[in-house]
């Protein structure tokens, strides 16, 4: 596993320095590349009760990149990203082992304020879930209220977040309408805007497009591309084309009946073009049995 990780990192560096012909690389402006490791998962295991569902995942997420997690259902992708912002512990039977370092500090260390961690590591869920009792504007700013953050200019922040989520033009005239009045795709972008308002460093997206039609999916992907220059994005997806379109790096997870483990990680172009592992190749080419 360690050697695989090193391979992955070497590959990442070479990918960053080369003028890769992948679409993901070409949209990154040179000045904003950078940047070191923002979030590091070290030897993550996870259990639900006695069931070991995740086996020793170590993965680094670089600032300013999009990492896609792919793999069949039940291989632990969602469980893994939920360990990254401590949502895993919401399931009563859950247990875990390992470290998650955010800016070098373990988010599971004793005495860490878990709400602060979730402010820094935001999350967008599979199903759009705007707060039904709130208007569009209130939804976007809900995080500030929930976390009791004071902001001087709320209107500016509101516009900025909706703009970054690619929703501003569609809703600017009806900010007082309820979130539920939007279409599914708009609701999901509203949820993205809501996550952005608390200015997270990392955004976790758990199959954000699985409930959406292709048109809305495209919009969300555009949003992801725009956001990726300023934050770390980790996206779980079952849609291989989506992983290829939006991500810089791809990690392939697989479970052979036991706990899920990471088979391979690397620049997206390599995972889809020249995967090192036969199982990865089978999965990304659709020959997965």
């Amino acid at each position: 596993m360690t050697s695989e990780k090193e391979n992955g990192e070497n590959a990442m560096e070479s990918a960053l320095s080369s003028v890769a012909n992948s679409a993901a690389q070409s949209r990154r402006t040179p000045g904003t590349q950078a940047m070191g490791v923002g979030l590091e998962a070290r030897g993550i295991h996870a259990w639900f009760g006695d069931k070991h569902v995740l086996d020793d995942i170590s993965l680094d997420f670089w600032s300013g990149t999009v990492t896609a997690l792919i793999g069949p259902s039940g291989c632990g992708k969602s469980t893994f990203i939920r360990t990254l912002n401590r949502m895993h512990e919401f399931i009563p039977t859950a247990a875990m082992a390992g470290e998650v370092l955010l800016d070098g500090k373990d988010i599971y260390a004793p005495g860490v304020d878990v709400t602060k961690i979730r402010l820094k590591v935001g999350m967008v869920f599979q199903k759009p879930n705007p707060f039904p009792s709130m208007t569009i504007a209130e939804n976007v700013l809900a995080g500030l209220k929930l976390a009791q953050i004071k902001v001087d200019n709320k209107d500016e922040l509101l516009e900025e977040c909706l703009e970054r989520a690619g929703l501003w033009n569609e809703v600017k005239d009806r900010l007082d309408a309820y979130g539920g009045s939007l279409s599914g795709g708009q609701q999901q972008r509203l949820c993205i805007a809501r996550s952005l308002a608390v200015r997270p460093q990392v955004l976790l997206m758990d199959e954000p497009c699985s409930a959406l039609d292709p048109g809305s999916t495209l919009k969300i992907e555009e949003t992801i591309s725009q956001l990726s220059s300023s934050m770390t994005i980790i996206i779980v997806t079952h849609n291989m084309q989506q992983a290829a379109r939006v991500s810089d790096y791809t990690a392939f997870f697989l479970s052979d009946g036991g706990p899920g483990s990471m088979i391979e990680v690397g620049p997206t172009g390599e995972i889809f073009g020249r995967p090192k592992d036969k199982r990865t190749e089978n999965y990304v080419t659709g020959r997965f049995g």
């Binding site: 912002n85 949502m87 709400t115 979730r118 869920f125 707060f131 995080g143 209220k145 929930l146 608390v198």
Partner: peptide, 17 residues
């Protein structure tokens, strides 16, 4: 989950969401 993932405590999530 959405409320908590936005950095709300459980009490604030229940009361506001």
């Amino acid at each position: 989950e959405a409320g908590v993932a936005l950095g709300g405590t459980q009490w604030r999530t229940v009361a506001m969401v």
